[in-house]
Design a protein around this nucleic acid. Structure first.
Length: 334
DNA sequence: TCTCCACCGGAATGCTTGGATG
DNA sequence: CATCCAAGCATTCCGGTGGAGA
């Protein structure tokens, strides 16, 4: 029944992007100078998760590559590579210039120097989840490298700009910003329909079932495709040639749990402890949470460090922080 | 309305780690 | 092998904030 599993994978880049015509043409237009072998101004893509920001950026760069004779490009997820070193390392990797860098610190800033001396064709870099970068001056440094064109992606426009260093902000304030809204149910349905066409037997699933999935995913394409994948896998493991509604009902919580589990796996022990306390006890004021944590953790960290952990958990959408200052309390999400 | 204080989060400083270097 | 050094994590210090209670 599954004819091509790749199109149901999270990182798959489709050959056509649907319902984002305006965004695609806006982005391509901004990147136009690259076809003349010069770099373009930075672009900032923002909007909630699962609305096609990453997909569209990669898709557009892919298309640009077909039109331009020579062009280097690289995608970096700043959630995973959030330090200056790791980000720079990835960027050099994209130019095949990282071969002799093996450790976390060759002399002071060799990586940046090497990037600065790059004088090849235009280098288009996609920096995803830039709000996770701990050193935002990196953006300023990259901005000043003439060959580099930056596509910046983030969920939260305001927070990013608030956290930026003054010099970066004044530069990026004027750059092109493209806002992405959540997909509507009919849009998601047709996106799913497209994936089915490439990845499943045509009769495996009905339009009504696709619409149900689209509705259940809350406008998030990643979740929707995850649900479709799980339902398809469940059906084919039972050697059926079509997806039953039952497969879909089961796949909804499964897919959501999968996405959540992926982020939980990235937590360290202290962060997990905090999250588990909130899961078992529900909402807690900050003080009580810290007390519970010190009892449970074998080597409790300081209050300040715990605040860092909690803000990380909040960013990961695992917990919700209510209230300001003195009255703040934390509770698990969902 | 004023004062207190729990809590937030920025910044400076300290500690640990592990590849590089002689 | 000993030493060096910056990354990365953690602690310390501290000003800011807003709700509770006098």
């Amino acid at each position: 029944m599954i004819t091509d599993a790749r199109v149901l994978q999270p990182g798959f880049i489709p050959r056509e992007v649907q319902h984002r015509d305006a965004e695609v043409s806006y982005l391509s237009h901004t990147l136009d100078p690259i076809t003349e072998q010069t770099s373009a101004d930075p672009v900032f893509l923002h909007g909630p998760s699962g609305v096609g920001k990453t997909c569209l950026a990669q898709f557009t760069v892919e298309r640009l590559r077909e039109a331009v004779v020579s062009l280097n490009h690289q995608y970096v997820n700043c959630w995973e590579d959030y330090t200056r070193f790791k980000t720079l390392y990835r960027l050099l990797e994209g130019l095949d210039k990282s071969f002799d860098i093996h450790r976390q610190s060759t002399p002071k800033d060799v990586l940046m120097d090497r990037l600065r001396t790059y004088d090849g064709p235009p280098y288009v870099i996609i920096l995803d989840e830039i709000d996770q970068l701990q050193d935002t001056r990196l953006l300023y440094d990259l901005y000043r490298i003439p060959q580099i064109t930056m596509i910046l992606i983030s969920n939260n426009e305001k927070e990013v700009f608030a956290s930026l260093d003054e010099r970066v902000r004044s530069r990026l304030n004027t750059c092109t910003r493209i806002k992405f809204d959540k997909y509507r149910v009919d849009e998601l349905t047709s996106i799913l329909h497209d994936r089915v066409q490439w990845g499943l037997d045509p009769d495996a699933i009905t339009d009504d079932q696709l619409r149900y999935i689209a509705d259940a995913s809350g406008g998030d394409a990643r979740t929707a495709i995850g649900i479709l994948r799980n339902a398809a896998v469940a059906a084919s493991s039972k050697s059926r040639d079509g997806i039953l509604s039952e497969d879909i009902y089961n796949a909804v919580p499964e897919a959501k749990a999968e996405i959540r589990q992926k982020t939980i796996d990235k937590l360290n022990n202290d962060q997990k402890t905090l999250f588990e306390i909130l899961l078992s006890r529900g909402e807690l004021p900050a003080g009580e949470l810290y007390q519970a944590y010190t009892k449970q953790a074998e080597d409790p960290k300081t209050r300040r460090m715990v605040r860092n952990y909690l803000s990380k958990l909040e960013y990961y959408n695992l917990i919700i922080a209510d209230g300001e200052n003195r009255g703040r309390s934390y509770r698990p999400r969902g």
